[in-house]
Design a protein around this nucleic acid. Structure first.
Lengths: 229, 229
DNA sequence: TTCATGATTCGATGCTAGGCGAACCATTCG
DNA sequence: CGAATGGTTCGCCTAGCATCGAATCATGAA
């Protein structure tokens, strides 16, 4: 009656407080050292070391050595997507943290979803693209219209370079906080990158939060043709 | 540093042998009783009862009472997809069962993926549809071409009824055993249903295996224009 | 070389949670 | 009604594993 791959090990690894905390922190996309991860997990270095060894062994994390530092990051996008889909189920089910973070509102407003923008502003961009018919849906999957390609070029995004990659250009990613869709894929990643280089927003150190300045958010809303705040 | 929903509880629930066994069994799509689930998990009824209570409480399972029986099924498609993506990561990572099932080959050949066909034959169908340009890719997402609609109608599938549903008609689902894509969505479900009613294949009791008869597989390959065995 | 810091290994400890036996409720059937 | 079967509750036991202190290894700086 034992059908299929052994999911127990993977799930059990994620099903521990300290390790889940580490993995969640790494969802921000940047690599962290063992000591930093020990801090976010709230455990000592020895404990963190044991956890990290297990996560490495299971290939959920990848390691980059740099001098006497060891930087850890999520092994690949598959793992990130697994974590997001876990968050989706957890959120839907109402399994929120009892003591939710003081920065939760900022997180709901705009955050990194591994390499693209999620949260209210992420959903807002997505909706605006659909509304203005720059993106249209086929079988509930987004596709960039010709007008959308022009729009992106005007924003300074090299669409052709993105389209040439193996990763899909547009993908709809389900947002755990909004229960709505936002834009992933290479275009999603490029849009986030653009918001940062244009100075509209900046990353908050040690968090998934993306902090938009007031003029930055206004510029974003103007470009995408969305009123109000 | 506590960002996002609490994934620990959900992951920990799946990260237990008995419970994972139960969830995997329910991936076959049909509801099972508490006693049946106790058997597949290899535990006593009392133990199973405790596990099932937890899974219900976390809304990973749904319950249907029927007389003195209690039928359990996966709460919804989100949960099924979470489990498949866990299997994907587990398989990629090589976390196979040490004592893999004697029916593993059959499982790799053709199996139920919640409500559609997966495994070698599932991938074969998908590839054939692409090859014959009945299905074409847009941003790596499948869309049914007009010729494909005709093809499906000839197979006896009511495309218009399927397209009217809220669920997407075509979706590409990643196969853990093949690391290739196969067809999900309402059309995927309808194709499986068609294989069963045409007598090409039958479900194997208490398993995700879909067993094709020799003439059934030949008929399938003929219809989809794929040679060999 | 010596010192400081990042990181791992080892051994001991303590708690959580899964497991079962036995008894108990509930539904169906003769 | 009683017998049979599906399912739950209770109490106890045990094993696995997360955790930490202390010691050890490794890298880089002085």
């Amino acid at each position: 009656m034992k059908d299929g791959p052994n999911i127990v090990g993977i799930a059990a690894l994620i099903g521990d407080h300290a390790r889940a905390e580490m993995l969640t922190a790494l969802m921000a996309g940047q690599a962290l050292t063992a000591t930093e991860l020990a801090t976010v997990a709230g455990v000592t270095k020895q404990t963190a070391s044991a956890h990290l060894a297990k996560l490495l062994d299971a290939q959920l994390l990848a390691l980059e050595r740099q001098g006497r530092h060891r930087y850890f990051r999520l092994a690949d996008r598959d793992v990130a997507q697994l974590l997001e889909s876990l968050m989706g189920v957890a959120y839907r089910v109402g399994a929120l943290r009892l003591r939710s973070s003081p920065r939760e509102p900022a997180l709901r407003k705009a955050r990194i979803c591994y390499d693209h923008l999620a949260g209210e502003l992420g959903v807002l961009i997505y909706d605006a693209l659909i509304e203005r018919k720059l993106l249209h849906m086929i079988d509930e999957q987004p596709q960039l219209a010709p007008a959308g390609q022009r729009f992106c070029r005007e924003l300074g995004i090299d669409i052709d370079a993105l389209a040439a990659q193996r990763r899909p250009l547009c993908r709809a990613c389900l947002d755990w906080s909004m229960r709505r869709r936002h834009l992933a894929g290479t275009l999603g990643a490029a849009l986030l990158e653009r918001c940062l280089t244009l100075g509209w927003a900046r990353r908050v150190q040690g968090s998934r939060v993306v902090s938009f300045s007031v003029p930055g958010e206004l510029a974003l809303r103007r470009e995408f043709g969305v009123a109000g705040g």
